[in-house]
Design a protein around this nucleic acid. Structure first.
Lengths: 201, 201
DNA sequence: ATTATCTATAGATCTATAGATAATGC
DNA sequence: ATTATCTATAGATCTATAGATAATGC
């Protein structure tokens, strides 16, 4: 029954990855340890050798989800260095992102939940949000001496809000309009600072 | 034990009001029927004479929360008819709103949760969101023939996103900067269309 | 007679722990 | 000998239902 330390560590990583997806789909309170562990190919009993509590996993899964999310931003930017903001907006403010909760932005999928969690989970979110702002900063305007520019903060707010709203309504047309209006707005306001963007799709 | 029909209806309304607050504080999955009913001064057994299911209550509580929220927007506007947008921004993008989940905007407190719920709960949210857009529309720009203007949609997105982000981080300064940056941004962009606003507080 | 609320409970599920098992690591 | 995972279970909680109670409404 016992596996090697190497395999045990791989199993732990699998649990974190699976949880980062399933928490986004069902919320921290919407899925139990039994289902999480089974989705990772283990049984519930193995959980507490790997994690101190469900909250501990929530913290680590949030951290993982936000790391993967910001890496995706950087990958999109590298693939389109002439218009990194346009590249990120193209997938972030898309219908595909709106419909795919489990693999999408954790701030959108779990933002309301995170507000109710303890300092540990919020620390994971804060680190990820700071990373978003760092990445976004140079794309949307000049630095003003502050750690983050107001423009980076309002741009991120508009992006997150548009996704939250697009997912909270039934009407597909209304949902899409939130995304398109935000995309147009974010790109237009960034262009006003002299940046270049491709056509809005 | 039985109460009058009038009292029974009052009890039902109390349950809806209490639930609209407690769901915002704990999430739909974060509080049980026992605690909800006790907070309304009743016992769990009385629940199913008043509601078909917990989901039914979630739908009605969401509807109630959003109605109260949009009425608060209208009340603020009436109290400050020269600068209705400024009046709404003053409380919506405030630290007080950030810290008060139970009585604040339901889209912020339950937006991530609503995305996981069925069509009934989403219908409650959609109706409330449409009301927000209707109210916001005339304050932020001219109608363009569409049901809602892009500007109303991006303004609401920025407001909702700023609150979600401000609640998801531990650092109070960062939290407040999201609110202030969004307030400045929304008011400045509205002024650009020729509207008048008071000083940003 | 009807019925709003109560107490009590069924049956499922939740987090967490205990002890057994079998493979690893020394 | 150690330990990662397993099966099993404790004890609490969840949604929903059943039947008792006592006041309303006819």
């Amino acid at each position: 029954m016992r596996v090697s330390r190497d395999q045990a560590e791989k199993n732990r990583q699998t649990v974190i990855n699976v949880a980062s997806q399933l928490f986004r789909e069902h919320g921290f309170d919407g899925i139990g340890l039994k289902d999480l562990m089974e989705a990772a190919g283990l049984t519930q009993g193995a959980f507490y050798k790997q994690f101190a509590s469900k909250g501990d996993l929530a913290t680590q899964a949030s951290e993982r989800a936000l790391e993967v999310a910001s890496h995706r931003w950087l990958a999109a930017a590298e693939a389109n260095p002439k218009d990194p903001l346009g590249a990120v907006i193209a997938f972030y403010l898309s219908v595909g992102h709106c419909e795919e909760r489990g693999d999408g932005c954790p701030v959108v999928a779990l933002g309301s939940d995170a507000a109710r969690q303890g300092a540990d989970v919020k620390a994971s979110f804060e680190a990820g949000i700071r990373k978003y702002l760092e990445i976004l900063g140079p794309w949307v305007g000049e630095s003003d001496g502050e750690e983050f520019t107001d423009k980076a903060m309002t741009t991120l707010s508009t992006m997150v809000g548009a996704l939250v709203l697009s997912r909270a309504v039934n009407n597909k047309r209304l949902s899409k309009r939130f995304l398109q209006a935000a995309a147009k707005d974010v790109l237009a306001r960034s262009s006003a600072t002299g940046k270049q963007h491709g056509p809005i799709q």
